[in-house]
Structure formats: C-alpha cells, structure tokens
C-alpha cells in the first residue's frame, strides 16, 4: 500500500474540482433564473403601463 496517499490525493482533487465546478454552474443557473423572473416582471409592468403600444418588445420564449 505504498503511495496510497498520492492515490487518495489525486482522486480527491478530481472530485473536489469537479464538485466545485458543478456548484459554480448550479449557482449560475439559479442567478440566471432570478434574472429571468426579474425581467419578466419588468416586461409585465411595461405592458400593463402602455397597453396597445406596438413599440413594446415581444416576450421571449
């Protein structure tokens, strides 16, 4: 079992780095969803404020 520490360190590094990256991606996803909700609210307010105005942007899918 010589060099066992290096084996554990290598696999730990792999899992920690991958975990941190997935966490970063997950946090970005949450931030994007919050931003999307905010924009939808703003768009709703604008549409209600000036009904019938054709210059307002269309809703994005």
């Amino acid at each position: 079992m010589e060099h066992f520490t290096f084996l554990v360190a290598a696999y730990s590094a792999i899992f920690v780095v991958i975990f941190l990256y997935v966490l970063f991606v997950w946090r970005r996803q949450a931030a994007l969803e919050a931003q999307l909700r905010e924009m939808e609210e703003r768009m709703k307010e604008l549409n209600e404020g000036s009904r019938g105005d054709e210059s307002l942007p269309s809703r994005h899918p």
Binding site: L32, L36, R42, L46, S50, L56, H60
Partner: peptide, 22 residues
C-alpha cells in the same frame, strides 16, 4: 446557460429601449 444569458442580454436591451420610448 450561455445561450440563456445571451437572450437575457438582448431582452434587457429591448426593455431599456421600451422604457425610453415609454
């Protein structure tokens, strides 16, 4: 995610434009 971010940027620009017009 990056596609969604790009779309959000465009949406933000359109909203800003609509706000100016309003």
């Amino acid at each position: 995610q990056l596609r969604a971010r790009t779309r959000l940027c465009r949406m933000g620009q359109e909203i800003a434009l609509a706000e100016v017009r309003a």
